[in-house]
């Protein structure tokens, strides 16, 4: 495996049992994710893009295949190498920031408190200047003391991105981050991702919006029925 890639997945598979039926949500996907690039995973509902992002983000464990993150082996079905839950937590803390479709901000915490939450869990000192910088970068100056209920959808998603940025992650995983936003706010969010990737942060996002993906991402990965369907190594 190569140092150029922050994530390397080989024949990654994820099966689910649904009653007596065995569903392959991800079926032998191999991808190599370059550091500092903005990847968009596109495809119809049920194509496996969210499942793949969850596997690549150490939120879920594969059924088979190999997965390395930052050169660390997270999963290898051949050697039965599988990280424990504790290791997955530590890998998530070390590399990732997550952004979800429904924002998932804590309603009783202010914008600043929501952003600093991952620092609390990472046992890192909360630096108010750093939080202010994140707010500025996301165009949320003056919103620090507001509660999520006082923000628009686009602002809430930017706070969620700020929360992901608080721990200086190397990779941001954003699953359908624009699913609940209008096109203007959706474009704003993708613009932020683009800027972050230019600063060296790897961004992996799943989206239905091919147009947005084409306008902002460096690479598009098309998925169908749990498989990559287009391009060299699935990447175009």
């Amino acid at each position: 495996m190569n140092n150029r890639y922050i994530i390397e997945a080989e024949s990654l598979t994820k099966h689910y049992k649904m009653g007596s039926e065995d569903i392959s949500a991800v079926a032998g996907v191999s991808v190599q994710i370059e550091q500092g690039k903005f990847y968009a995973f596109v495809g119809p509902s049920g194509s496996g893009k969210s499942t793949l992002l969850n596997l690549l983000g150490a939120l879920d464990t594969p059924s088979a295949g190999k997965l390395n993150i930052g050169g660390e082996q997270v999963f290898n079905s051949e050697t039965n190498g599988k990280s424990s839950q504790r290791n997955l937590t530590s890998i998530r803390r070390k590399y990732f920031g997550f952004v979800f479709q429904n924002f998932y901000l804590l309603p009783t915490l202010t914008v600043k408190e929501n952003i600093s939450l991952p620092l609390l869990f990472a046992r890192k000192k909360i630096d108010p200047e750093q939080i202010d910088k994140i707010l500025k970068k996301l165009g949320l100056e003056g919103r620090g003391k507001h509660l999520p209920s006082q923000l628009s959808g686009g602002e809430m998603q930017r706070v969620a991105i700020g929360r992901a940025l608080a721990v200086n992650p190397q990779i941001i995983i954003a699953d359908e981050p624009t699913g609940n936003l209008d096109s203007k706010n959706a474009a704003l969010v993708f613009e932020v991702f683009k800027k972050l990737s230019e600063e060296g942060i790897t961004v992996l996002t799943a989206t239905h919006d091919v147009q947005l993906a084409q306008n902002f991402s460096d690479k598009i990965v098309r998925l169908k029925d749990g498989k990559i369907v287009e391009g060299d190594a699935g990447i175009c």
Partner: peptide, 16 residues
């Protein structure tokens, strides 16, 4: 459950 899941996704360990 969802909130706890989010906590864990953003870095909270079991002990947290």
């Amino acid at each position: 459950r969802r909130e706890i899941g989010i906590f864990k996704a953003i870095g909270a360990g079991n002990f947290d």
